[in-house]
Nucleic acid binder design. Structure first.
Lengths: 284, 284
DNA sequence: TGAATTAGCGTACTACGTACACTGTACGAG
DNA sequence: CTCGTACAGTGTACGTAGTACGCTAATTCA
């Protein structure tokens, strides 16, 4: 149906360094440069005047501005002014604003919380990760103003992936299915956090919770009495019954359903026996 | 933990028109105006010269530009030029660019595919909806460049919700839990579509699939050999085994797990008996 | 027929990203 | 020690956004 269905995910399957070295040549030079800026050591040359600050200073200044006044307030001028320098000074550290935003996104993600030791069952560990990621996104709602899935992936992004792959790898699924479960958990976690992120953004703009609720409710409420939306109108006008959940409880409720689904699949599959060799070797 | 957890979801529970009329007074006037522009009839007054085009003409022109050259190409000048008028002409139809973008987002979502008759089991219908929404998002990857969860919700947005609430309401859960399942399905659908959307965006920019795969693979591949990412490195270097899935197959695989989880919950719950009255009435 | 109202236009202002040339600084090779 | 080289931060300038404001002409109602 979609063209996307014609593309396999070979990029995330059975990789090895040789493939990557060969493949990275094809990457658009600008994208490669942006990626390198996230991973490189960025050690300064010895010649010339001493730099007055570091790339990380720039990133931290930008993050503080975003935190205070939203992503729109992050202008090259605002960032440099916060450091006490002129606009163009930043261009000695980042070639353009996109590269700076890449760095901001990765830095803002931070590291996932340390895994608890001794490791518990995978379900509890995955749930902890999911809540932690949601909390991270809600704490930095301005991140949602960027299409940051498309951005180059930096070390912090990878560290979040690592932190959930670790418990997922203990489920006993083969690598392909383990990767699928990664998509399921991460997809749910990000997608189901959007409402809370939206509220967090409103709060950051100084909107009260009541005002945000009123704004969202006003739009949703248009369904009431509108013949185009009978099922939804019935849903939101139904008595809420016993105990309405908080947003976070709702998120956890949904997460438990997702984990149930994964568990059911695990129960229906024969455990995967890991091979002693871990190098990828294509079948003959 | 998060402040968000202190807010309940009263906005989506047991609403009635009186609540809404009372609440909408509190909404920020600009937000209310943006919402009204999506819902109002926008019939023109009789006095003055005849308008040369309609708000919908503006929206369609903008969408065509976004489709061709991405969201960044949608400037007030580009849109008006496409209609054959000057920049400022548009401001007679939309008070500012944000309002225009709201309209673009809602129009671009379109209507969900018509429900199949006779209605099948909820699982098949929900799965069809999820695939349709994913296809819609992939077909308009430029939508992902906007934080459109936060935007005012227009009629098309509501029609997508309606289309999935209808089958979900047939599961036999109480309204609160039905609402939770809505979040689960929609959260997974949007979150798990991001990779495909990212690929679709690359395609729209003229990037080949191989180049996109190489770019993503180059970043992910940095995990290989890096002691910080042992589990993820092991995952991506593991032999892919039998049949790697296409992106859409992966999405469907995950979706089935999510539906499994919902189904398990349904099996563990006593069916909800709908009341004959459908008006919300708080319990005494 | 004029008064009121509205459509599209021209001009102008501000803010932003960034190219480029300039000045001054610090290191290292001679 | 010194001078050339490479680099840091600055000043200026340009192109492109969004949009406020006032003008003119078109339309219709009183």
């Amino acid at each position: 149906m979609t063209k996307a269905s014609q593309t396999d995910q070979s990029a995330t399957r059975a990789l090895n360094r040789d493939d990557l070295v060969e493949a990275s040549v094809r990457v658009d030079p600008e994208l490669r440069r942006r990626s390198e800026l996230l991973w490189e050591d960025r050690s300064r040359p010895t010649r010339g005047p001493k730099p007055a600050f570091t790339p990380d200073d720039v990133v931290q200044a930008a993050i503080r501005i975003a935190e205070a006044d939203g992503l729109a307030a992050v202008t090259m001028h605002a960032v440099s002014a916060r450091l006490g320098y002129t606009t163009m000074a930043i261009y000695r550290y980042f070639p353009n604003k996109d590269a700076l935003l890449d760095a901001i996104v990765d830095a803002a993600m931070g590291s996932p919380p340390r895994a608890r030791e001794p490791r518990g069952d995978w379900r509890a560990d995955v749930a902890r990760w999911s809540h932690a990621k949601r909390a991270m996104l809600c704490a930095r709602p301005w991140l949602a103003e960027l299409p940051f899935v498309a951005a180059p992936h930096g070390p912090n992004w990878l560290s979040w992936v690592e932190a959930v792959v670790e418990p997922l790898s203990r489920i006993g699924l083969n690598p392909v299915d383990t990767g699928e479960m990664l998509s399921v958990i991460d997809g749910y976690t990000r997608g189901a956090s959007d409402t809370a992120i939206s509220l967090a953004r409103a709060r950051a703009r100084g909107t009260s919770d009541a005002e945000w609720t009123a704004a969202v409710g006003a739009d949703l409420g248009r369904a009431i009495g509108d013949p185009r939306f009978p099922a939804f109108a019935a849903l939101i006008t139904a008595p809420s019954g016993g105990h309405p959940r908080t947003m976070e409880e709702s998120f956890d409720f949904g997460l438990q359903r997702v984990l149930d689904g994964i568990e059911r699949f695990v129960e229906s599959t024969t455990p995967y026996a890991e091979k002693p060799e871990r190098a990828a070797k294509p079948a003959p």
